[in-house]
Amino acid sequence: MAISFRRANAADASEVATVYIASRRGAAAYLPTVGTDEEIRAFVIHQMVPERETWVAEDDGRMVAVLTLHGDEVDQFYVAPGEQRRGVGDAMLAHAKRLRPGGLQLWAFQRNAPARRFYEARGFIAKKFTDGATNMEREADVLYEWTP
């Protein structure tokens, strides 16, 4: 496995959307659907990729993960379902830490135990728990922070 990272561009947006949708369906199937696949695809193509610092991880030319930064926050982070538990997420998160050496923060759903274990094992500390009233899914979440 030779993972490489690069900024996503407009030509990548459709594939970024495919990874995003497939990952949300798999790992976060318990979440209420927020928008149709077409609406999510439009959001990724017209807003997320052009307006946010979106990175892709590739393995032998295949897009295997997507990570979007907004300031020092990991705004979106998805590993393609068939690529999970192979070190892709670890490599992508390490890339984000190199990009933001002063620290990072991110939100995770409280019910997403695998994601929470993943972040905690990589030095993220839970700082704030909410009932989800302020997120689109209305799902209880937790704010994590990483400081070097």
Rank of each mutant, 00 (worst) to 15 (best):
G87T: 01
G87Q: 01
G87N: 03
G87I: 01
V88I: 14
V88T: 14
G89S: 12
D90S: 13
D90V: 07
A91T: 09
A91I: 09
M92G: 04
M92E: 08
M92T: 15
M92K: 08
L93N: 00
L93T: 00
A94G: 05
H95E: 15
H95F: 15
H95A: 00
A96Q: 02
K97I: 02
K97V: 02
R98S: 13
R98N: 06
L99K: 14
L99Y: 04
R100C: 06
R100N: 03
R100G: 00
P101I: 05
P101E: 10
G103E: 10
L104I: 13
Q105T: 11
Q105I: 06
Q105F: 12
Q105A: 09
L106V: 13
L106A: 11
W107P: 06
A108R: 06
A108Q: 09
Q110L: 12
Q110C: 11
Q110E: 12
R111P: 01
N112Y: 00
N112S: 05
A113V: 15
A113Y: 02
A113D: 11
P114E: 14
A115C: 05
R116H: 07
R117L: 10
R117I: 09
F118H: 02
F118R: 04
E120H: 07
E120M: 03
E120G: 08
E120K: 02
E120I: 03
A121P: 01
R122L: 07
R122Q: 06
F124S: 02
I125C: 08
A126M: 10
K127S: 05
K127D: 04
K128I: 04
K128E: 15
